[in-house]
Amino acid sequence: MIDITLQKSLKSQDGTMILDLSFQVESGSFNALFGPSGAGKTSTLKMISGLLRPDTGSIQSHGDIWFDSQKKINLAPGKRKIAYVFQDAALFPNMSVLENIQYAAGSDPDRAYLENLISSMGLEKLVNHKPDMLSGGQAKRVALARALAQKPDLLLLDEPFTALDQSAKIKLQQHLSGLHQDYGFTVILVSHDHAEVMQLATKAFIIEAGQLLRSGTPAEVFGLEGASDEITVMAQIIDHDAESITVMHQGRTYRLSWDASHQPTIGSWINIRLKTTDAQINSLGKL
């Protein structure tokens, strides 16, 4: 279990924002910090890693104190058993893929583990390549492999799937899921993509303007349980005949069947309730 309580005054273009968060992360779980840009997600990740110092608060991992403002404890980033995948991979350009991974593994690397990591991520053919020869997806995969070469207890991922095309994104997500299951490290993923969080995380924390709004399973926090199977749209009647009316909604016209016993009023507004399961709309094109 990792207990995190953080307070920090953050300066942004819109002025000062007070980040004030308190949450717990279970060992071996896959967590997501979800929220809009500028909510304080990356700053939270940096504070957990030790790269950014909180004003006050504490971080404890399995009883070890990483940070405690009252006790004046602030463990160096390298002593927290954390690996971090940055948004832009941040591979060292002077080193090959293999050298990047070896450098991360430290002076006494577990060779069998590294070889397994490289082959399970399909990097064998890339080991001698320099980072500038890699595609965006390959670079992110190497960054993930490099992070895991550290054998971290906690893996921090800062929007690792941005700027990737769909196929590279799916491939990286599959690798991440598989490795998480195999090695059982704890993950905190920063994301602003609903689908990504739904697919990967077991717990999501919704953060807005530096505050934790709610937390729970992704289905709970995104309100999936209470999802409606109806859509209501508002439209204006612009024409009718004996059996149907023509309405306009957001610049497009639609024909709907109409109960002839009621006389429709042209120009009036109506609510149209549609079942998401069987909705059929006949679009007449844009006016």
Partner: peptide, 14 residues
């Protein structure tokens, strides 16, 4: 240099 170079290396405990 991108700050992430130094930061990643710091996290590697170097």
């Amino acid at each position: 240099l991108p700050p992430a170079y130094k930061e990643s290396a710091q996290l590697m405990g170097r």
